[in-house]
Nucleic acid binder design. Structure first.
Lengths: 175, 175
DNA sequence: ACCACCATGTAACAGGTTACATGATTAA
DNA sequence: TTAATCATGTAACCTGTTACATGGTGGT
């Protein structure tokens, strides 16, 4: 009954419920979702796929090709579906943010205040551009994906607000 | 010039700038900060300390004790200070949240809507209790630590708002 | 009697990144 | 001619978690 899978394995299996795919396809799918909630490296994907087959969560067939490596197409099995479903139903683990910026702030007394201000501005810039990317994002797949997108959007808005007010505060301290 | 250090190493060195400490002390410090931006396991700390000494970022001396393992006290060196400072000055890497909940939402069509609602409620509960812990938190060390705390607080508030509105939306869909 | 505190660590495992290696096809 | 797309993977490394192992002191 164990059948523990990692978030990455769950994501792979989740995408496979939408149809037969290759490792290459999976990575494109993840990119298409903007890398907002899952951003695997290809080596990880290619490492994971065979282990899913080994455990009976997917089957694979090889498509012969010329001029490039043969393609391996993976199909999710009933067992695989059951396992993702089980993973999805587990209560999600909640953890506080552990971004490097927080550590840099926490030890702020160790560096010049201008540097800190720079960091806050940099993060605001990045959050803003990510927000733009997200808002312009085409692949709103379905109503559920939409929920995930809004979540990220609200998070970004909060960050930007925080950055703006912190920026003001730090700038004031510099005067 | 390489001298790359990880976030954990930076955190350890950062704390060591406040005085001589043992591995045990370091963990207590991290806990005292509420584990909000750094939550190392002890095995990690004990693994990291000797490597800092090897690289000349800290020195250690042993305090003999009876009835318990000898204590190792670590002191940061000049080189160590330079290295943390360099790490702190590097522009922080910014990354979108990659919480499991987002994946569960994204694949929401694979599970019963009540389950999803449950997940959202669970996360709201946890965020709320974390917020309470944070607000009641005594060790506001200095103005910089304060900035880090506000950051986390704003993040939590945004999550809770999002959870509330999502809860309503999902509940409506269930009717 | 029991629990929290003090204080160290090792070993096995899991998860993930970076760099390397190969090479044809097709559109601008 | 240059870049993107297609398509696979291996090897080395880094970071981190979980479980195990030990045992005295001091307070309720």
């Amino acid at each position: 009954m164990a059948s523990k899978i990692s978030a990455t394995e769950a994501a792979v299996l989740g995408l496979l419920t939408r149809g037969e795919m290759s490792g290459y396809d999976l990575q494109r799918e993840a990119e298409a979702a903007g890398g907002f909630f899952w951003a695997p490296t290809k080596s990880r994907i290619y490492a994971v796929l065979p282990t899913l087959v080994d455990r009976g969560y997917a089957t694979s067939r090889e498509v012969l090709q010329t001029g490039r490596p043969n393609k391996h197409l993976y199909t999710i099995t009933k067992k695989g579906r059951a396992v993702v479903k089980a993973w999805l139903e587990e209560p999600p683990v909640f953890e506080p943010e552990r971004a490097p910026l927080l550590l840099k702030l926490y030890f702020g007394d160790l560096l010049p205040p201008e540097k800190l201000l720079e960091h806050v501005r940099a993060m605001k810039t990045q959050a803003t551009s990510l927000k733009k990317r997200l808002e312009e994002h085409p692949d709103r797949h379905d109503a559920y994906a939409e929920l995930a997108y809004t979540h990220t959007l609200e998070w970004l808005k909060a960050l930007i607000r925080w950055a703006s007010s912190t920026e003001r505060e730090l700038a004031q301290r510099l005067r």
